[in-house]
Design a protein around this nucleic acid. Sequence first.
DNA 1: TTATACATGTAAAGTGTTACATGATTGG
DNA 2: CCAATCATGTAACACTTTACATGTATAA
Lengths: 179, 179
Amino acid sequence: MALDHAILVSLTERAASGYDLARRFDASIGYFWPASHQQIYKVLGRMQEAGWVESTVHEQHGRPDKKNYAITAAGEAELDRWATVPSGREALRSDFAVKLRGFRDREAILTDTRARRADHVARLAEYEASEKRFYPDPSALDGAGLGAWLALRGGIHTEERGIEWCDEILTALEGRGSR
Amino acid sequence: MALDHAILVSLTERAASGYDLARRFDASIGYFWPASHQQIYKVLGRMQEAGWVESTVHEQHGRPDKKNYAITAAGEAELDRWATVPSGREALRSDFAVKLRGFRDREAILTDTRARRADHVARLAEYEASEKRFYPDPSALDGAGLGAWLALRGGIHTEERGIEWCDEILTALEGRGSR
DNA sequence: TTATACATGTAAAGTGTTACATGATTGG
DNA sequence: CCAATCATGTAACACTTTACATGTATAA
């Protein structure tokens, strides 16, 4: 049920259509909880029935009507309830780690590791650009900005450690004979 | 389809029953790909039909018969094929990061962060105990052991960075007024 | 003329979680 | 006597991914 809460959090920041939310999930909040537009539309419908969000339709010319969703008091109450539920452990569930554990072809895993490292570097650059742009002075943050910044910090840590791990793998495998 | 491969990797290390695999998934390989016994039995059945594994039944007295599964040549070929498929980005999908981003109750998120930190510390201790016990001399590793050790290193990095992130959150939130 | 942005969805297939079902043996 | 371990599964539900479906406006 966590996509529900991710959408609610996003709507707390600003009301939005399903389309807008889908774009946000391709960027900011989707860093921590990816979701497609198909999923988002479905959950919005369910949450509207539950009374957690409400929508107003804006007619448009030349393109489909736009439904703007806003969080309701009941939705905010749900967020507050959710805040008190312990998160519990998050599993790794890493395709790459399984592949690494069982590798038999050194070149194949090296190729994969190099590509993975490049992905981490690229995403780290995105995160750091966001940090510089939106949170240039973290010590001045409070309220909504503080949580968003700390979440972004988590993304930065994740990428940094991913790079370290890749480097460790490359060092271990490049310096040895074939397997 | 990655549970399939996680099971195949595990069977490469040693043939096993569904029950044995479930225990392995509660410990070693499940660190990177958690799975319940229900899921494992289902996938074993599917993989046997596909010819990737084969089973021999061992009758037992006083308890149900035991089916021992072993990987076949076709199963190994599938692993080799899979090794050449690029892994692609792994999404974070973190409940906690979403909660942090949207937090409104400072005490609630502090409680959650402290519990999370304790989980990381506990898991890190497990990983480090495993490393000391099974890979006391990493430089001497080759073949199967090397991949398993590098995967474990990934787990260690994950927990270490998780602790750092929690500490950053605690520092940022404990030193400030309420929100 | 081709791709991208805008804007909303349904349907099917795959994957994962939780609940249910059975039953003997062993250790505290 | 109660809990844990051994040993296998089915069924229902929840969630995610991928494919399908439609149509205009705008910029390269």
